[in-house]
Design a protein around this nucleic acid. Structure first.
Lengths: 168, 168
DNA sequence: CCGTGTTTGGTATAGTGGATAACAATTATC
DNA sequence: GATAATTGTTATCCACTATACCAAACACGG
């Protein structure tokens, strides 16, 4: 049984020679390139990746950075309030805070009013790191996005994404 | 020791009455609302959430749907090719395929040319499910986005996200 | 004042997505 | 024909997410 049963199955050797140029043809994305969710996730991964690179000297993840930002803008809040605004579940927020506190970037202070809750506050070091992180984000990360999209493009994108995040 | 050592600590009862209206003040997002990465992730979560709702009757995740779409547009490809285009690592692609194959939506066929690789193809049922999924996505999911952003807004958003995903 | 219910921070745990190392089978290369 | 590379796969690890449960503290109604 060499080539009697399946005569069509093995004519590959000739094809290789014939179309050697476009041998490995790219996989077609097809309708996937029009799926907003797909492109959205791809873009999000790229942006987070770049954020990590830009802020690498300070060893801050996007989540950690957002916590520091919130603490700076909202002094006197407790864990549940901060976690809720970021969409982080309280149990998962504990270890995140542990890591920040162990690096002396923020502290939990027992509230006098309600001795259950922990008031969160930035330390001196935390404020310093946050300030440096902001500079890196603005001068490297967001600057690159501005360069790619243009100032008004970036603004338009931010507007539409905010609309989706809030009203969808 | 009733109220001699800490006279200032318990004057909360009066404050409650005084500012009862704006008791629970909202946490300020601050500069977070201008961080593109933050809004981007929030929007992405919302969009995926809605995708799951819309396509729930067919029990398809975004990842599974994207695989079916790719298989339809690229017959005769193997696992690594499909996985690579989707940014999925080969080891993690195995279980994804297992679930699709166990539901009889696609099949792995050993290639005649290269007996290492598995050619992936949609089954009849897979094509049917994909067709129904497409209809749901277009008529419910993407339609809602169109309604929120307008046709040209959606197009602009898709364009900028694609630019980020490809060139960033 | 007391008992009931709720809230807060926390632990334990499970599920999921992503990443690396290693492996057998197969193919490519020289 | 020996060596290297590739394919699908397993095992494993890490990060993130989600749920159940707990003790301490508070709120409230009797």
């Amino acid at each position: 049984m060499s080539d009697s049963a399946k005569p069509v199955s093995k004519r590959e050797g000739r094809r290789e020679a014939a179309v050697a140029v476009e041998e490995t043809q790219a996989v077609q994305l097809g309708e996937l390139s029009d799926l907003l969710g797909y492109v959205l996730k791809r873009a999000q991964l790229k942006v987070f990746e770049d954020f990590l690179r830009c802020v690498a000297p300070l060893q801050l993840t996007p989540a950690q950075f957002s916590v520091l930002l919130l603490l700076d803008a909202n002094p006197g809040r407790n864990q549940t309030e901060i976690a809720n605004t970021l969409g982080i579940l309280r149990p998962n927020f504990v270890s995140l805070l542990d890591s920040l506190e162990s690096r002396d970037l923020c502290t939990r202070v027992r509230s006098a009013n309600d001795r259950r809750s922990h008031i969160l506050m930035l330390t001196e070091k935390g404020r310093g790191v946050l300030a440096r992180a902001k500079k890196l984000v603005v001068s490297k990360h967001e600057a690159r996005l501005n360069e790619l999209l243009g100032p008004d493009g970036r603004e338009a994108l931010l507007g539409m994404l905010t609309k989706i995040a809030e009203e969808f």
